[in-house]
Design a protein around this nucleic acid. Structure first.
Length: 415
RNA sequence: CGGAGCGUAGCCUAGCGGUUUAAGGCGCGUGCUUUGGGAGCACGAGAUCGCCGGUUCAAAUCCGGCCGCUCCGACCA
């Protein structure tokens, strides 16, 4: 991609109103644009990151046997009345009417829709277990949106729902999901702890929140210095030491990144989603549901991974893998920059090629801001050595790699 | 929804009753000079000062209403 043609344009100045680090950097780098309170457009750079995160999540969902679906945002009132949630959601539903004055909600979650699907096709214990997920827009009538992408009123969520014949099966799958979640956070270079939580308006018997340590987090969590134990401070009051390993506990601000619920038969009972068990008895389905906010995850990565110059994207979710800067408009430099870009692309590497007629300083500043993992520089200086200068966003040192070997070398390093 | 604050050019800000033409920076256009850490000079385009009403000889500036946005509180992925 030529940067001169990129729709996104970095900003030098930002409103003094912007406070959260992720909000600031995502706006400065022009990853996102605010349309209204809590409502954001994703621009090319931002959308590439968003899609990388989606694909990472999608991969992990596939690994645990979940099947991808896509459910409607427009959901009829009657469905929500079956579970008595039409007027009882917190935050409330966005509601609207069609031309026949029929009422709908814009889905803030999809338990009703998925349970309806399940009751239409799951009939026997032989059909179980099942797990389906989607990555789709959610609408939540939040009282107050905050911190850019950290809490919005429209956002993409990966929501997974599982159906089981037995508690054991549900528990077994729940643990699998939990492991998949930790793998997802690992791939984003985030440390997560699972803490027991209130089930809120989703309900069910038990739930856990997946918390990521970050100064701009709104939740206070007690985290063990030694093991992976975490607990919500409101939930447990004051603990003095870790109940798992006895080590010291620390208070940390965290962002709630994901939430998993043992729904049990809450929705299936209310909506008549049953199956016939081995003994020929009709039983309600046992359900679990598991959500990750994609935009919030993107913001969290930035909260945790940035410096005073900009974002530092982990390779897995970076908008491009290589940012190639061409310095000066010397013909030979330009020719080499194009050639190197092409050879990288042919090796399957995603390259943002800064071909703009801008000063070196501005290009360096933009590269730091956008935060692509590898920065390559082609200039008269580098050509004197018949080389390309290579620097990683996380490192300070640069090195020279021969122009002929650059594609192969970068390809190897990225793997 | 309670509390606080803010709306001036595409963006960031200054001005907060009276230099009459609303100021500066960024960005944008044209030309020249530059090119390893947000370059320089010159010229130029770009604003019904959020909207409506009121006070006044005079309103971006004071008052009221509305709209929008931000932050703190409660809630969430």
């Amino acid at each position: 991609m030529k940067q001169s043609k990129l729709f996104s344009k970095t900003k030098k100045e930002l409103s003094e109103d912007v406070e959260a680090a992720s909000h600031k950097w995502l706006l400065k780098g022009d990853f996102i644009d605010q349309l209204s309170s809590g409502i954001y457009s994703f621009l090319p750079l931002g959308w590439r990151v968003h899609q990388k995160i989606e694909n990472l999540i999608r991969e992990e969902m596939n690994k645990i046997g979940a099947q991808e679906v896509f459910l409607p945002s427009l959901q009829p009132k009657q469905l929500w009345e079956e579970t008595d949630r039409w007027g009882n959601m917190a935050p409330p539903l966005f509601k609207l009417e069609d031309q026949h004055e029929r009422e709908y909600a814009l889905g803030s979650t999809h338990e009703e829709v998925i349970t309806d699907l399940a009751r239409k096709r799951i009939e026997s214990y032989r059909d179980l277990p099942q797990a389906v997920f989607q990555i789709q827009n959610k609408f939540r009538n939040e009282v107050r949106a905050t911190g850019g992408l950290l809490r919005t009123r429209e956002f993409m969520m990966k929501d997974l729902y599982s159906f089981h014949a037995t508690e054991k099966s549900l528990d077994n799958y729940y643990q699998k999901v939990k492991k998949a979640y930790f793998r997802i956070f690992d791939s984003c270079n985030l440390n997560a702890v699972a803490v027991e939580a209130e089930s809120g308006s989703i309900g069910g018997s038990k739930s856990e929140e997946f918390m990521i340590e970050s100064p701009s987090g709104e939740d206070e969590v007690l985290i063990c210095k030694n093991c992976n134990f975490g607990a919500n401070t409101e939930k447990v009051g004051e603990l003095n030491e870790c109940p798992e390993c006895g080590a010291e506990l620390e208070h940390k601000n965290c962002i709630e990144e994901a939430h998993a619920f043992y729904l049990g038969d809450k929705y299936s009972s209310e909506m008549g989603a049953t199956f016939t068990d081995k003994n020929g008895e009709e039983e309600p389905l046992l359900m679990g549901c598991y959500g990750i906010g994609v935009g919030r995850l993107m913001a969290t990565i930035v909260e945790v991974s940035h410096d005073d110059k900009g974002i530092i994207w982990p390779m897995r979710v970076a908008p491009f893998q290589v940012h190639l800067l061409q310095l000066g408009d010397d013909k030979k430099v330009e020719k080499t920059a194009k050639k190197v870009t092409k050879s990288l692309q042919e090796a399957g590497i995603e390259v943002l090629y800064d071909d703009r007629d801008k000063s070196a300083g501005e290009k360096f500043a933009d590269a730091d801001l956008i935060g692509i993992p590898y920065r390559l520089v082609v200039s008269e200086k580098s050509l004197e050595e018949d080389s390309v200068e290579v620097k990683m966003r996380v490192e300070d040192e640069t090195e020279l790699i021969s122009t002929g070997k650059i594609a192969e070398e970068i390809e190897n390093r990225i793997k």
